[in-house]
Simulated assay, not measured.
Amino acid sequence: MDVHNVGDGVLASDVAAAHEADLAVQDGFGVNYLKYWVDEAGGKIFCLVEAPDAEAAATVHRKAHGLVADEIYPISAQG
């Protein structure tokens, strides 16, 4: 799970476009961006991603749109 702290002005429509850009380049890096959430009021974006490592996930964001996450947390599915 990655977290972007973007501050004021984050719009869900802009994040949707960035997510589409991620999907367009992710295959070349063994990455699968699954879902995202936007907190417009709090200026945060959360992305759920399957990746071989944090650097691969960051590389996809960097190549797709340049909005690299501020934090990346390894998580595992439960239940």
Rank of each mutant, 00 (worst) to 15 (best):
I75C: 14
E40L: 04
A18P: 01
P74I: 09
D14F: 05
V6T: 06
S76V: 14
A41W: 01
P74Q: 14
D53T: 09
V3Q: 11
Y33M: 01
S76K: 06
D22H: 10
V25N: 01
G9D: 07
H19A: 14
I75L: 14
D27V: 02
G43P: 01
A41C: 06
D70N: 15
G43H: 11
E71V: 13
A18C: 09
A64F: 08
S13E: 13
I75H: 05
P52V: 03
L23T: 12
V68L: 09
C47A: 14
V15D: 05
E55T: 04
V15Q: 02
A69W: 09
V68P: 01
L48E: 15
D70G: 12
A24N: 04
V25F: 00
H61S: 11
W37P: 01
W37D: 09
H19T: 04
A12K: 13
V3M: 11
G42Q: 04
S76G: 13
N32P: 03
A54T: 06
G43L: 13
E55Q: 06
D70I: 07
L34Q: 15
Q26L: 07
R62Q: 08
G42V: 02
E40Y: 06
V6I: 11
F46Y: 15
Y36T: 06
C47K: 04
D39E: 07
L67Y: 11
E40P: 04
N32F: 10
Y36F: 15
K63S: 08
G7Y: 12
A69C: 12
H4E: 02
D70T: 12
L11H: 14
G43D: 05
G30I: 11
E55N: 10
N5K: 13
E20G: 15
P74D: 12
F46A: 13
E50F: 01
G9R: 03
G9Y: 09
D53W: 08
V60W: 00
P74C: 12
C47G: 00
I45Q: 05
A18T: 07
A54H: 03
D22I: 01
G79E: 14
V3C: 11
H4T: 05
S13V: 10
H65N: 05
G7N: 03
A41F: 05
K35H: 15
I45L: 08
A21V: 07
V25S: 03
Y36Q: 05
A12V: 10
G43K: 11
A51H: 08
H65F: 05
D39H: 00
W37V: 02
K63H: 08
D8A: 15
Y73R: 10
G79L: 15
A56C: 04
H65Q: 04
A21S: 10
V25Y: 05
G42C: 00
V49Q: 02
N32H: 10
W37C: 07
V60M: 00
S76Y: 11
V49S: 03
V38C: 07
E50W: 02
G30L: 07
L48M: 15
A54N: 04
A56G: 08
Y73I: 13
